[in-house]
Nucleic acid binder design. Structure first.
Lengths: 233, 233
DNA sequence: CCGCCTTCTTGAACATGTTCAAAACGTCGG
DNA sequence: CCGACGTTTTGAACATGTTCAAGAAGGCGG
């Protein structure tokens, strides 16, 4: 009765045991393909069901809404990004290269979906939606994402006050959200503008962080850290 | 044939001449009332039409989509805010008080709509949507909003490098977008958390801006200004 | 007053996300 | 193999934003 679709979020179990699991996968992969091929808006539930060779009702049995299919897509992306980033995090020490690498890597992974990402964003913006990056339901994905940025910081040559260092990953995650927002609106050739944004922001962030060592700046830094903490509470 | 609804955005002509103008107004006011009373999602076009005493098709003759009705609502809010802010901008000189006043004022004006603002935001987040704060269609409203922040800056005691001063209004507008995002997700009593956010961010922004006078910070400031400019282009 | 053109109005029809009651299927104790 | 019960599957029905072909209203030159 209760939709099982939600449970899939962290489902990494081998597909041996489950029965309908195959059908679920089939529906998902069909949906993702169609989303990619013709965008989210133009892909109807009827077509997804038809191409997957099941009935409309059956699709809803596994995914309680079109949004849930989108959610699955989101998780898929996230996982791909984490994989794509391993190499960079292992080989690079420079903070700017690590951060830039991670951000550009996200761009590459997400590129095929740029066209219909807008619709995703639309749904994500609704506070009550489980798709919202701030929602409880997407906490696992969010935490995983923040974790990547923690690795970016921790494995780098960056020297920072412990307070700031602790909050920085979350701030970088927020930065990425901003970049995503820009990206969604970016229709330049080959995402030129978003790439430029990353290439200019990364050194800027680096500069800013190094500035925090100047005595006069220390105070504001602490204020920012305090603000961030109070927001999270 | 082409929808006249769009033209209304900047339509300030007296209602004497037009014929269907009365019908248009009737539909709009009915829609706004219903949006307020039962939210955007639960208000159907059929009900709007019925309550306004016209046919569904007729509503579409004047407003080419439900979103267009929302757009009208948005403009309404914006105008209210501009009015509410006049007093503060005339009486106060302190930058923090001006900025804080404007932000809190926005909060007050928007409070009655907080509950269904989420739905509004959802639609606004879609890049292609005319409701997006970054879209071409909402440029007039956006410009008007930025203009308010320009007044905040210009009429204040703030001393800044001309470059920064020129870009600051747009940055403050962006800050407000951030606050709105927070606000939409804020379900604390009496919007306590959003108010706290404003009260903590405003002095912080002030501090930050004053920091830009420190020689070592100047460089980063210029970088930021450059980045903002390149984004706008 | 008549024909004609523009403006306005209508409601049925359409597209699509979603629901639901019923049926098919599978499994397991007997 | 039987029957009962949980799981899966079905497709028709529903709700609602949107379109469209047809008609009504209103004015205007003759």
């Amino acid at each position: 009765m209760v939709q099982k679709g939600v449970a899939t979020l962290t489902d990494v179990t081998d597909s041996a045991t489950a029965k309908g699991e195959q059908t679920r996968e089939l529906i998902l992969s069909t949906a993702l393909r169609l989303f990619r091929e013709q965008g989210y808006g133009k892909t109807t539930m009827r077509v997804i069901a038809a191409e997957a060779g099941v009935s409309v009702g059956n699709a809803y049995y596994y995914y309680s809404s079109k949004e849930h299919l989108m959610q699955a897509y989101y998780d898929h992306l996230q996982a791909q990004h984490r994989e794509a980033v391993v190499d960079i995090l292992e080989s690079e020490k420079s903070f700017t290269k690590r951060l830039g690498g991670v951000l550009h890597s996200w761009l590459e992974v997400s590129a095929p979906y740029h066209e219909f990402a807008g619709t995703f964003f639309k749904n994500a913006a609704e506070p009550k939606s489980p798709l919202s990056p701030f929602s409880e339901q997407s906490r696992p994905a969010r935490d995983a994402s923040v974790e990547v940025f923690r690795q970016v910081v921790d494995g780098s040559d960056l020297k920072l006050a412990p307070d700031l260092k602790a909050e920085l990953p979350e701030l970088l995650w927020l930065m990425q959200m901003g970049i995503v927002l820009f990206w969604v609106h970016d229709d330049s050739d080959g995402l030129r503008r978003t790439k430029a944004l990353i290439d200019r922001s990364v050194p800027l962030v680096d500069k800013l962080l190094r500035l925090t060592r100047i005595p006069g700046v220390r105070g504001v830094t602490n204020d920012i850290v305090g603000l961030v903490r109070s927001i999270k509470a």
